[in-house]
């Protein structure tokens, strides 16, 4: 097998991983900090794509859609937390799971009613149409942009969590919310913000995926499954885990596509099973958490 082909395949895999990582990150943050398994995450990914497309058509520019959709959908996420999810804290983990599961149906059906059940074209931004010669082959400009943008978002998130006071509160809140309350931190506000951030990341994933796939009401279903696989491999609640596992899954899918293309979907589940056999808590998960 030709080396340039393998390098091309590596790039495809990383581009695939970029969207996976962003989406899984939202899921894992919300679980890690709030203990909520958000089954509406895939639907919110889809809402993000529709919001991005709608805002882009309203403003005439993809960039406004990319900027505003995660913010607005993130705000919508905060509303969901405030009105619905908040009431279920402290109860069994199944309760918010069922709530968000039902919510996902409402969101998908709502989009079907407003935008119809057919797919809608999401044009690639004109600046990013075309391919770049990587020396080993041609690669779409847009996918390179997605890789770069996701790298920047990850860096910002990391700095925020590790280097700021807000990040400190968030990390401490995940460990022991009760002590935080005693120390006078309004943990409810932190949770509100975290849920909004998680949903905003799902929406960002959706906008980024839009120009690569057609936009349709069911586009979040598969993404949710993929995001869950990534979070489970990485360890539920682990941010580093989501990044590493996302990259692993993306590259794994891509390499398997080269040798046994019909196995491309199965491979991530096989990878998950293999990881769980060796480390039941996932690669970076804490014992007793998973």
């Amino acid at each position: 097998m030709d080396l340039s082909l393998i390098i091309m395949q590596l790039f495809s895999g990383i581009a695939l991983a970029a969207v996976l990582v962003i989406t899984a990150l939202g899921l894992t943050i919300v679980f890690g900090m709030l203990g909520v398994v958000n089954f509406a995450h895939g639907a919110l990914f889809m809402i993000g794509a529709y919001a991005g497309l709608y805002l882009a058509s309203l403003t005439g520019s993809f960039w406004w859609g990319l900027l505003l959709a995660p913010v607005l959908v993130g705000a919508f996420g905060m509303l969901i937390e405030f009105v619905l999810v908040r009431r279920l804290y402290g109860r069994s983990i199944d309760d918010p799971l069922l709530l968000t599961f039902g919510l996902s149906y409402i969101l998908v059906e709502g989009v079907r009613i407003v935008f119809g059940s057919d797919g809608i074209p999401f044009p690639t931004p004109p600046q990013l149409i075309g391919v770049v010669d990587l020396g080993v082959g041609f690669f779409p400009k847009y996918r390179l942009f997605v890789i770069a943008l996701v790298a920047v978002v990850l860096l910002v998130l990391w700095l925020m969590l590790e280097r700021t006071r807000v990040g400190l509160i968030v990390r401490a809140g995940a460990r022991d919310p009760q002590i935080m309350r005693v120390l006078g931190v309004d943990i409810g506000k932190v949770w509100l913000a975290i849920f909004g951030l998680g949903v905003g990341l799902a929406a960002l994933g959706g906008v980024l995926a839009g120009p690569m796939r057609s936009v349709n009401p069911e586009m979040g279903t598969l993404v949710l499954a993929e995001a869950f696989v990534v979070t489970v491999i990485g360890g539920l609640g682990s941010i580093v885990g989501a990044v590493v596992a996302g990259l692993m899954v993306g590259i794994c899918i891509s390499m398997v596509a080269l040798f046994a293309p019909e196995m491309a979907t199965i491979v991530m589940f096989a990878l998950m099973a293999a990881v769980l056999l060796v480390r039941p808590q996932g690669l970076f998960g804490l014992k007793g958490r998973a």
């Binding site: 082959g137 598969l222 596509a257």
Partner: peptide, 17 residues
């Protein structure tokens, strides 16, 4: 390719080669 796949990018380099 698997039925209902969302991403086809991983097949493209090989098809081009």
């Amino acid at each position: 390719h698997p039925f209902g796949a969302a991403d086809y990018s991983t097949f493209m380099p090989r098809l081009m080669s």
